[in-house]
């Protein structure tokens, strides 16, 4: 197996690694690989940041007034809007 293929295999584990869902055996293998591989470490760091940036940019769930009004009307709950 070429080194390139290895890195792709390891990169495929990074997402689960970030979520803490990788088995301990694979975790150890990946950590050993990361210690000696700058490229995979960059993929790990930038993927973590990507997820952080998405979470930070995630807008709160809001229902526009008109949408809410029409929803409650369609459910015959219009009398609850002002409560």
């Amino acid at each position: 197996m070429s080194e390139h293929t290895d890195c792709h295999d390891y990169c495929a584990m990074i997402s689960e690694f970030i979520d803490g869902e990788l088995s301990s055996e694979l975790c150890t293998k990946l950590e050993e690989h990361l210690a000696g591989c700058t490229n995979c470490t960059v993929v790990l760091n930038t993927m973590k940041k990507t997820i952080d940036i998405y979470h930070e940019s995630n807008e709160p769930a809001e229902l526009p007034e008109g949408v809410k009004k029409r929803l409650y009307s369609s459910l015959s709950l219009a009398d609850y809007i002002r409560k």
């Binding site: 700058t38 760091n45 930038t46 973590k48 940041k49 940036i53 930070e56 940019s57």
Partner: peptide, 29 residues
């Protein structure tokens, strides 16, 4: 394209202010 080059550039150490500026957030969204 995951099978192509992994595009290795480490931008993760940029200051938070740059990482979280409006344009970046719009880009990811």
């Amino acid at each position: 394209e995951d099978n192509e080059a992994l595009e290795i550039v480490d931008w993760s150490h940029q200051p938070e202010s740059e990482l979280l500026e409006k344009e970046t957030r719009q880009k990811i969204d």
